[in-house]
Amino acid sequence: MKITLSNLSGIPIYEQIKDQIKSQILSGELKEGDKLPSLRELARDLRISVLTTTRVYTELEKEGFITNIQGRGCYVLGEGSELLKEHMLREMERNLSDALKAAKIAGLDISEVHQALDLMNEEKQNE
């Protein structure tokens, strides 16, 4: 697991860590069943407060990305996780809502939005 923190970005530390772990899980760098460093190990390595790492892991667990097995540690949950699916569904809905708002401002109608969506999907399939 790779975490790089920036003190100057203005983004809270816990958010930076959360985002980086999330993106590594989503990109597959962190695979289902991978064991994450313990709260305290992570805090020590990153030179931050244990309460900060606790918050990160707690929120990631709530959002369905990881699971905490008492006495064993935190493990990455795979794409099969229900919580994760729910979370990603909500994220998709949020992004779609943003997309529709932007389309309205740009003066596009709903069929143009559909077109753009299909085009993007094709490109992603070809990647």
Partner: peptide, 12 residues
């Protein structure tokens, strides 16, 4: 010193 302290609290 900071390293030492972080190590000291490792086991909770």
């Amino acid at each position: 010193l900071l390293d030492t302290l972080a190590e000291f609290i490792q086991d909770g």
